[in-house]
Structure formats: structure tokens, C-alpha cells
Simulated scan of single mutants.
Amino acid sequence: MKKIVTKLQHFTSYVTMSSTIDQQYVEKTLAGDTMAFGYLVEKYQDFVFTIAVRILKSKEEAEEVAQDSFIKAFESLSSYRGEAKFSSWLYSIVYRKALDSLRKNKKHRGIELIEDITEGTVESIDNALQFLQDEERKKAIRDCIGKLSESEAAIITFYYFEDLSVREISGITELSEENIKVKLFRSRKKLFTLLKHSILPEISNTNGRAI
């Protein structure tokens, strides 16, 4: 899986420095410098939108939820105690906002298709993804993640795209760490199944041969 989705390599020093900078801007905002919050919005707006759209499957709804999440974060900033990273605290807000939107609109999507995935299949999928151009590869992965259920798509995104730990994801989603591990395992298998059915036939047709 790590070959399919390249995890961002965060060094401990970088994470510490980033968290310290976030805390400084939080304190500036609480001290009355509302413009300081703009730094936090600019820094996290792309990933906040990504989380929202992975859950809601709609750009329009995701944009609204992302905006509402930042408003909520700004209004609730005094409740942020710094016990977790600011980013994790923010992601928990967008995660809940997105789920609230789903419940409000009574929407739920996702597949239950899971196949046995062997190491040979994983290697074939990885080879197929390497064959694709960068943008094609990103789109293929994005499209397949979009077919996962809301919680699965969010957890996969937190784990592989933001490099969050199981404990951090547990704090954001309010699910137990054991539950997160189970969902990660099932989500990976579903994602491989989707990639197998969408990527391998496409590459085979393009090359005129099976991978």
C-alpha cells in the first residue's frame, strides 16, 4: 500500500516546529489579531476541503462544510487547549461537520465488495500505477477512494495523505484505536479491489497485454 500511495515523510523536528508555529498563530488570534487566523486557514484549507469532499462526494457540499468548519474553529478557538495538534483539532471539526451534513441529507454511499488480495495482485497494481502518468495515477486513486464509504475514505485520507497515526485518527473520529485498525485493514482491501478492477483492465487494454 505504501508503494501505491506515497506517504509524506514528516520528521519529528518538522512536526514540532509546525505545531509550535500553529500555536503562535492561535495565541495571536485569541489576543485579538484576527488576521492571524488567516494563516491557519491558508495552511489547512486544501486538506480540510479534501476531507470534506472524500466524505460528502460533492464539491459544492464540501466547500460549504469546509467554510463552516473554519467558522466553527474560529468561534471555538478559546476551547483549543493544545493537548493535540491544532491540525488534528481542526480535522475533528470538519469530520463531524461532514458527517452532520450526511445525516441531514440522509446520504450514505460505499461498496462492500472485498476480494482476497495476494502479494502478486498488489505488485501487479503497483506496476500498473507506475505505468500511468502522474495525474492519471492521482485521479485513479482519488476515484477509487471516492467509492469507499464516508468513514473509510476519511480514515484512508488521514492515514496515507496526512500521515496521521492510529491514535490521532482515533481522537479525530472518536472511534477506538482497535476500530480504526479494523477499518484501515478493510478499507485497504476494498481500495485494492477497486484498483484491481479499474486499473488492471485499463492498462491491459492500452498495452494489449495483461500486467
Rank of each mutant, 00 (worst) to 15 (best):
K3D: 14
I4S: 04
I4K: 11
T6K: 13
T6W: 02
L8Q: 04
S18G: 12
I21Y: 00
Q23S: 03
V26K: 01
K28L: 10
K28R: 03
D33H: 07
M35Y: 10
A36R: 08
L40N: 09
K43D: 14
I51T: 06
R54C: 12
I55F: 03
L56I: 00
K57W: 12
S58L: 01
K59C: 14
E60R: 00
E64I: 09
V65E: 12
A66Y: 05
A66E: 03
S69Y: 00
F70R: 11
K72E: 11
A73D: 10
L77H: 02
S78E: 15
Y80H: 10
G82P: 07
S88T: 06
W89Q: 06
W89M: 06
W89K: 00
L90D: 12
S92L: 05
I93E: 09
V94W: 13
Y95K: 02
Y95T: 08
Y95I: 07
K97Y: 07
K97G: 10
A98N: 02
K104H: 15
K106H: 10
K107T: 08
I111A: 05
D116S: 11
V122T: 02
E123P: 01
S124R: 14
D126N: 14
A128W: 14
L129N: 00
Q130N: 14
L132P: 13
L132T: 06
Q133N: 04
E135D: 11
R137A: 10
K139T: 05
I141R: 01
I141N: 00
R142F: 08
S151W: 05
A153W: 05
A154S: 02
I156Q: 09
T157V: 10
F158D: 06
S165K: 04
V166Y: 03
R167S: 12
R167H: 03
R167F: 09
I172Y: 08
N179Q: 15
K181R: 15
R186W: 01
K189V: 05
F192Y: 15
F192R: 12
K196L: 03
H197A: 11
E202W: 09
E202K: 14
N205M: 09
T206V: 01
A210G: 04
A210S: 15
